[in-house]
Design a protein around this nucleic acid. Structure first.
Lengths: 229, 229
DNA sequence: TTGAGTAATATGTCTATACATAATGGCGCC
DNA sequence: GGCGCCATTATGTATAGACATATTACTCAA
């Protein structure tokens, strides 16, 4: 066997020992210095490898206490939250969208309180339907805080969704994924029967303390969000 | 203003400049060497900060071409895929489960082909109902490859889910999230009307080329998977 | 026995330097 | 002008050494 060279090799070797149960879950593994001596590399290189594994949830590291194999390996799945156009085009389909409604209004209390808005605050309310290959793909229900918008809204060539990610910064955000039965409006827009199971992403973002946007994305039936682990 | 000290300070400062649009999306930012000179630190420190931001999707880095602000900031949401018991207990509810069925059978063709199984291969089929505070919370439909199991199946104190995570390694995996209408079996088990919108996680894992498990988790209505961005 | 104080230790980070690697831009050749 | 090669350049990684920091383990006194 060739000795591990770079930090990725060392990571692989450590992972292999964990999978082979040379190092059992919960057990303390050798220190960085010891591993560096064994692999014949600098401690920093071992540190890089072990840090990556700790970030991935495979190891747990604490100063002075050492490094141990995680007993409950919390596998972290990373989802890429992208622009809808790119998501559609990434599936090899053609993208289009249509702005359905635009108004200034007071958001429902649930949304207002979630965003931390004062009572009676007016937000911009935009509803958009996104298409993949001409078929309804996603219904977007968005509330926007006009105070944080640096420029005018985009022209018809850019969806609000895409314009937002390119121009409005935010410092904190929440995402939730759930399933919901299609309501009257969603069903009509997506051309599905009322009550159909829709995959729903709700997202709220803030810029500092100021709410930026709240959006609910209802995907047409059949949609799957995928990722590798 | 005090000069940034560690790599986290530098990361914060860079992020601030991006959010203030000192560095616009798509623009090339100064090189590591230049930033190191400006901040009065080693290049490795700047490298650490910029690498983190690149990993987070805020920056795009390419050798020789330099570092630029991402035009399509692909926000990466990381989900912690944990043991179901911990998920329930993390919500402050009491956890229990019941093994509903256990048999050896040939999986449906969809699953078999997805896993890359030979035709006619027999898998262990386990169905489990998980409860939160005594209420049906999650219906688990699992197919297990007996060849990769290192030990006997767990006793009644540990759910298959938890036992698997702690004892079976895997090298590759896929997760998908979707919404589905409750089928007859799911509806009966979760005590919801047929056709109710369920949040579904499907997951397949392999150990090298060998399939390990395929599982479908159907959550009772109202379930939300949350994460921060 | 208990608690406070202290020494020991493993990880976390930074530095300076060096070389590796990928990708670009320009140069020269045809 | 077009094409291929090569020097340049910015990032990626490795190194040894140093100091910082968190936390444990130990010692000693009340």
């Amino acid at each position: 066997m060739t000795a591990p060279q770079g930090w990725e090799d060392i990571r692989a070797e450590v992972l292999r020992r964990i999978e082979r149960r040379d190092w059992a879950p919960g057990a303390v593994i050798p220190t960085e210095a010891e591993l560096a001596a064994e692999f014949g590399c600098a401690r920093a290189t071992v540190n890089r490898a072990l840090s990556e594994l700790a970030r991935a949830g495979v190891l747990e590291r604490r100063r002075r206490a050492g490094t141990r194999v995680a007993t409950h390996p919390v596998r972290k799945a990373t989802l890429d939250i992208s622009v809808i156009r790119l998501e559609v085009e990434g599936r090899g389909q053609s993208y289009s969208f249509r702005l359905l409604g635009r108004s200034e209004a007071e958001p429902p209390p649930v949304i207002a309180s979630h965003l931390g808005l004062a009572e009676g605050a007016q937000l911009l309310h935009l509803t958009t339907l996104h298409f993949a290959d001409g078929q309804p793909f996603l219904y977007e229900d968005r509330w926007l805080n006009p105070d944080v918008l640096p420029e005018d809204l985009p022209g018809p060539e850019l969806s609000v969704n895409e314009w937002l990610v390119k121009t409005v910064a935010y410092t904190a955000g929440e995402i939730s994924f759930s399933a919901a039965s299609a309501g009257t409006e969603e069903a009509r827009r997506l051309a599905v029967p009322e009550g159909a199971a829709l995959f729903v992403i709700e997202r709220a973002t803030w810029l500092g303390a100021a709410p930026v946007t709240w959006v609910r994305l209802s995907y047409a039936p059949g949609y799957r969000l995928r990722t590798a682990v």
